[in-house]
Amino acid sequence: MISYLIFFLIICGIYGIMTLGLNLQWGYTGLFNIGVAGFWAVGAYTSAILTKPPVPEHLGGFNLPFIVGILAAAVVSGIIAFLIGIPTLRLREDYLAIATIGIAEIIRLIVKNEEWLTNGVRGISGIPKPFHSLLGNAYNFFYLILVIVVLAIIYFIIQRGIQSPWGRVLRAIREDEEVATTAGKDVFRYRLESLILGAMIMGVGGAIYAHFTSFISPEAFKPMQGTFLVWVMLIIGGSGNSLGALLGALITWSIWSGTEILTSFLPSAITTQAAAFRVILIGVLLEVVLLTKPEGLLGEDPHVSSVLKE
């Protein structure tokens, strides 16, 4: 039971990292990114390829330390966000949404088809688990601590950033782009920075995910698991509020995995139906929140509004 709880919290924490990254992009800057799964995959594969021992099937075998993998995941995700941002960030927010879905799809196609790089649909296995041999049974507990530490660092960075003049400009852009432009702010640059930083956070989340599961394949980065759940988490918790984002991650993941436990008692013949039913449930939950409490459970960080009213 305890071991399940630890497992549950680890996954929850990884989703929390994703949700924090998305909150920076959407909640604080108004960037509509529905390509979360793409950055997740980029982070996971980058770290996996860099830290694994050599194998003949695909690129990799650099045997680099875990921490290098994590940092590289952030950097590569950031670079991809930069490349994506250049052509898309000048577009309307809904165009950006369509563009990010396309990017996530292309990343998925690459991961699926470029076997020399990613081993294709067979996926990458044997991704090193840091300090695994040292810790043995207590490993998951250690990993939970690690996730919490990473989460705390990211949370701290975002809060500091948001309360700085930089964060104030971000929110001004989200509220009224024209005013921000006339105030002499380089709107494009600030949005690009937010997109990159958010993507780097997602990349870190992806790397942490890869090292925990030790196996990744294109299946793990489908839009449902990779993007949609993260969005539901953010909307339910409250966009524009980092604590809300984390609360949303906890609640949504509880519902998602809770229903998984329930449906696991069903006969195996209808497991695919049960899986579909769980997605419908999450979809309905999202619509109900949008209709009844669009600001989410916690609503926007009160600090945010007070800053804007200055």
Binding site: I34, M224, F228, W231, V232, I235, V279, I280, I282, G283, V284, L286, E287, L290
Partner: peptide, 9 residues
């Protein structure tokens, strides 16, 4: 966002 939810449903 609502339509993304409808899509999944």
């Amino acid at each position: 966002i609502g339509s993304v939810g409808i899509a999944l449903i």
